[in-house]
Design a protein around this nucleic acid. Structure first.
Lengths: 341, 341
DNA sequence: GTGAAAGCGCTAACAC
DNA sequence: GTGTTAGCGCTTTCAC
């Protein structure tokens, strides 16, 4: 381990600039109420010594950390098989660093981790938390609320009783699904199926609701539960062709599911979109553009979701912000037309 | 913002347990050299008060943070179009949390960010850094070395002069490439092409070297530079078919490139693997399994790479570890046989 | 406007 | 073994 050279302290800067520690502190923190010539002297001393404030000492007194935790519960490895979180993290990171906050990443792996994470959040290491909780039965959100830390959720939390008092950011899953199904209807399709995601996740449930909004009480055999994976999409598509061989359109709950469905359709000699039109959800580029044919899909702006989550939290953390009740933010989706429908 | 209730301090626990702060501190930090009955009393007091140590205060005196920075330089958005980093992060996170370290994620966006990151690393917020630097001309590694922070790199750094004194973890890109090409040779193919990645990245350069190790000075028209994307793979494949229509095998520098190549081959009526055999690299599951036909590819254990990076760094951070010179760790790859070759 | 001084909560010598 | 004490580097009253 490298023996790091002794870092200069406030004291050292003060000595060099010929002022008191208090003055240096003021300058370093914005310089309000310090006369110009002194500011200049201190700035130079800081520069020459390469002074960087010690964050630990600062936090000790201010009780703020300039850090936000991002908690990603990962009940399934699926999560990491797609770039979804990477994009969201990017959005979060951009917004956070723009306001000089650090991002502490907490990945959870199964139940045991929950207490670890809860302890950490309760331990006052961070000023707030951004939490991705995917499943209805996830105990994590409850633990976090218990920690009393300002929090914004990614995706509408399923456990919430009417969303009261919960801050979250989500895509308009239901509206996007409606648009997808309407597009298929507009193509003249009548036997439109839906391959769902895991229905214990609100995103999947909302997309199914959107499908039903448009289709009403369609033949229940047209709805096949799946799991957001290509393999699941294949299985669901096979089951669907079994039950309703006359299907002429498929709305898949995400692009991965759609890619599996496409493979089965090709294998069975059905032409896309001539025989069966297919629409996905997400517009996950490497997938949606790589399928054959390229996928018509509902795009959600994932990076923007991340950015807004961060912005919401930082606003709440800022003592100058007037107290307002937490609320949900729902972002619009757009249909991207490619060759599959 | 929630007004957090005053957190109990060591002092409070000491008072409640009827001992000194020092004793509580000892118990909290492992309890060595404290007699059992006292340990028990302190534990109970900690429990009852819900005491959680203040990390800022602790860091201030120990000069350790129990935190490691993960720096991901992102000159291209491509990085986030595949699950590569997500997997690596997962491995890193597992190892870090297993040893009670936090993960501070630093995503960089262009040049301006470099100074920000360098400042942060120099600022003594973290005990060490894990850095992903992808490009030959990236100034970040230099800045980081300047900060004098213990560091492990992900992927062989291209700027390194003979790898001396640099700790890194990488896959055996060159060996994996050799195995891929040999497999194609074993299939009786003779006109084996290579669609490269961006050659300013060591991974891409190493794979090309591996190809050349086996193919010697093959027709240079069989090597087409590409960029690790499906679109790039398409373009490269088209160029290749132009130059050498008689090609009977393709080794693509990664699975995304291979997926683009497959699409072009299908579109041109070439059967895979009968007319042209195709091998990829990465074994990125959602891609490799989703292509048609499924991809034979060189697997690298990305999560394990992350885990080893973290382990290496933590070992170096541990004062009990005897000082040893930094070194590179190269992980083996394995060829995964599917239908494309 | 500027400086002196009092801690923030903790660990680590050093006494006992 | 256990307690006492002196800081770690910073912000922030409070005098001047």
């Amino acid at each position: 381990m490298t023996e790091t050279a002794q870092r200069p302290t406030l004291e050292a800067v003060a000595a060099r600039a010929g002022v008191s520690r208090a003055t240096v502190s003021r300058v370093v923190n914005g310089g309000d109420g310090v006369r110009e010539p002194l500011v200049e002297r201190v700035r130079r001393a800081v520069e020459e010594l390469g002074y960087v404030p010690n964050q630990a000492a600062r936090s000790l007194v201010t009780r703020r950390h300039g850090a936000v935790a991002v908690v990603i519960a990962e009940p399934e490895t699926r999560v990491f098989a797609d770039p979804f979180f990477a994009l969201q993290l990017r959005g979060i990171s951009k917004e956070l660093t723009a306001q000089d906050n650090q991002l502490v990443l907490l990945l959870t792996e199964g139940r045991d981790d929950h207490t670890r994470v809860a302890r950490y959040l309760a331990g006052g290491h961070v000023d707030g938390a951004l939490v991705f909780s995917l499943h209805l039965d996830d105990p994590l959100p409850g633990l976090i609320r218990g920690a009393g830390l300002p929090t914004v959720f990614g995706g509408r939390p399923g456990w919430s009783d009417g969303d009261a008092g919960v801050a979250y950011v989500d895509s308009d899953n239901r509206g996007g699904a409606r648009e997808a199904v309407r597009h298929l209807l507009g193509l003249g399709r009548t036997r439109i199926a839906h391959l769902t995601g895991p229905l214990d996740q609100t995103s999947a449930a909302d997309r199914l609701d959107g499908y039903r909004d448009v289709m009403g009480e369609a033949d229940p055999r047209l709805v096949v539960e799946s799991d957001f994976t290509p393999g699941g999409g294949e299985r669901a598509m096979r089951a669907l062709l079994d039950r309703r061989p006359d299907v002429d359109a498929v709305f898949a709950a995400n692009d991965l599911t759609a890619s599996g469905a496409l493979r089965v359709l090709r294998e069975q000699g059905r032409r896309v979109p001539e025989d069966v039109a297919v629409v996905g959800f997400d517009d996950m580029l490497p997938v949606a553009e790589a399928t054959d044919p390229p996928l018509t899909t509902v795009r959600q702006d994932i990076e923007e979701m991340g950015r807004i989550m961060a912005r919401l939290l930082l606003r709440r953390l800022d003592p100058r912000t007037p107290e307002e009740p937490p609320a949900g933010v729902v972002l619009p989706t757009t249909l991207v037309h490619r060759a599959s429908a």
